[in-house]
Computed example of a mutant assay.
Amino acid sequence: MENFNDNSNYEKQRHGCVTAWLVFIIIANSLMALLYLLGGGMITENLPGVATSILVILGLLGVGNVIFAVLLLQWKKIGFWGFLGTSIVVLFINISIGLGIGQSLFGLVGVAILYGILQIKQNDVTAWENLE
């Protein structure tokens, strides 16, 4: 099979579902980052044990996820690894603030979904294979 990454005449394409998911990730993480960074008071009213510094960290991780989604749109595999990294950090934060292990592990489901969506083929090539 021809390696499309080495063929300069090949134009990378991604399935519309992949693009839609990445746009969804950008919107959702932007909103969550704004909520953590600007609506922290509302969150601490409902979860009094959560420090403001944790909310700032979660907000910054959300901003990071927006950047990682943009990198994926630009065909950069580092975007996926960034998502994995932020998810692992959030896992430890969730455990440290007292969430159960099951609830904390649920955040890693998003990474699995992202990886699965990157496996959708367009012209017999997955988006994952097109990532640099």
Rank of each mutant, 00 (worst) to 15 (best):
V66A: 06
S96P: 08
V125T: 07
L38T: 07
F68D: 10
P48W: 01
N3I: 07
E2T: 12
N65L: 06
A28L: 14
H15F: 04
G110S: 06
G110Y: 08
E132M: 10
I57G: 05
G107C: 03
F92H: 12
N29L: 08
G107I: 01
L91E: 08
G59I: 00
V89R: 05
Q74D: 11
V125Y: 09
F24N: 12
T52L: 10
V63Q: 01
V63G: 03
I26S: 10
V18F: 04
L105C: 09
V63K: 05
Y10R: 13
M1Y: 11
G40P: 00
D124F: 03
G110F: 05
E2F: 13
H15S: 05
S104P: 00
H15E: 10
W128N: 11
I120R: 03
I57W: 02
G62C: 03
Y115E: 04
F68Q: 12
A20G: 11
W75E: 09
F80V: 14
I101W: 12
I93M: 02
L37E: 00
L71C: 07
I78P: 11
I25G: 15
V56L: 10
I113G: 09
E11N: 11
K121C: 14
L60T: 01
V125P: 02
P48A: 02
T19C: 09
Q122W: 07
G41D: 01
S30W: 04
A69V: 07
V50F: 06
V70Q: 11
E11M: 13
L71W: 13
A20E: 09
L35V: 09
N7K: 04
L114V: 06
I93F: 06
L34D: 12
L108V: 08
W128M: 13
I43E: 00
V90N: 14
K77R: 11
G40C: 00
I95K: 13
N3V: 08
V18Q: 07
N65Q: 11
I93Q: 01
F24A: 11
I54D: 02
G49A: 14
L22S: 02
F83N: 15
I88G: 08
I43N: 02
I43W: 00
N65M: 08
V109M: 12
E129F: 04
L118D: 06
N9S: 14
L38W: 08
M42R: 15
E11G: 11
P48Q: 06
L60F: 04
N46P: 11
Y115W: 15
E2M: 14
G102R: 00
V111A: 13
V111R: 07
S96A: 12
W21E: 07
